[in-house]
């Protein structure tokens, strides 16, 4: 039950409350670049969601089994060369950034090949933005959040498993899709508006993004409220144990 609550809170937090784009302001370049038309925006959202999921899967696996101090694989290999207590301390976390970029780049390349083969029109409309997902900070950001919940966590029970990590990644991607689709809808209307010359293009887009971010501030506190509602209070817990 508690695990289920955590999953819901992580999902809600990633998608709405702490939206990657509108709360943390990561992944702005595709958010501005590909939000001209709704269908392209949705395509971009799905591509990012897909890449973010694969990258999260890879980075969780690598972090848990190789990178973190005392990870099973590195401990096992190091055990051949050094005493077991020293082997348990082998720490490869310095590799995190380079490994994550590696994993992201590979999965983007994979997605690019896939989209090119099966959705040529989507591939054309993405243009340069598909390879640019490689350097999309939203994806690296998701990987680093997962990293921070695996390495350096005091209580072993709080360490994220694959389910929680994937939830964060998928719903982070969903949040990105929501944000970019809303943005594309606004920008399609904006095409018909009489924008002052000096603000046309990126200027008005960034203003709209800022106002949109303020609108998303309305979600603040939803997660903590929900957490309070879903965790049984100590009094209730005592009562249920007495019965």
């Amino acid at each position: 039950m508690l695990y289920f609550t955590d999953i819901i809170l992580i999902a809600l937090g990633a998608a709405l409350v702490n939206n990657f784009v509108l709360y943390y302001f990561v992944g702005i370049c595709p958010f501005i670049g590909v939000s001209r038309r709704i269908d392209m925006a949705i395509g971009m959202g799905f591509a990012v969601t897909f890449v973010i999921s694969i990258a999260a899967l890879l980075s969780w696996t690598i972090t848990t089994f190789i990178l973190m101090p005392g990870a099973p694989l590195s401990k096992f290999v190091a055990g051949w060369f050094m005493p077991p207590d020293a082997a348990a301390k082998v720490d490869l976390t310095i590799l995190s950034y380079v490994v994550y970029i590696f994993a992201i780049a590979s999965s983007v390349q994979f997605v690019e090949m896939y989209v090119r083969r099966f959705y040529p029109s989507l591939y054309r409309s993405f243009g340069v933005f598909l390879p640019l997902i490689t350097t999309n900070c939203a994806i690296l950001f998701a990987c680093l959040i997962i990293f921070s919940h695996i390495v350096g966590v005091d209580n072993p029970a709080d360490v994220w498993d694959l389910g929680k990590s994937l939830t964060l990644a998928v719903f982070g991607g969903v949040g990105f899709t929501i944000a970019i689709t809303i943005m594309a809808g606004i920008r399609e209307e904006l095409e018909l508006c009489d924008v002052p010359q000096s603000l046309r293009g990126a200027g008005i887009t960034l203003l709209v993004a800022g106002i949109l971010a303020m609108a998303f501030m309305g979600f603040t506190g939803v997660d903590s409220g929900l957490k309070k509602a879903m965790t049984p209070s100590p009094v209730q817990a005592q009562q249920s144990s007495r019965e």
Partner: peptide
């Protein structure tokens, strides 16, 4: 040991990824 483990990690990833991408 740490250094060679790091190197082995990168080489292993490179081999795996390039195999997958080559197949794709």
């Amino acid at each position: 040991v740490t250094v060679s483990l790091a190197a082995a990690t990168m080489v292993g990833m490179a081999v795996t990824m390039s195999y997958i991408l080559g197949w794709a």
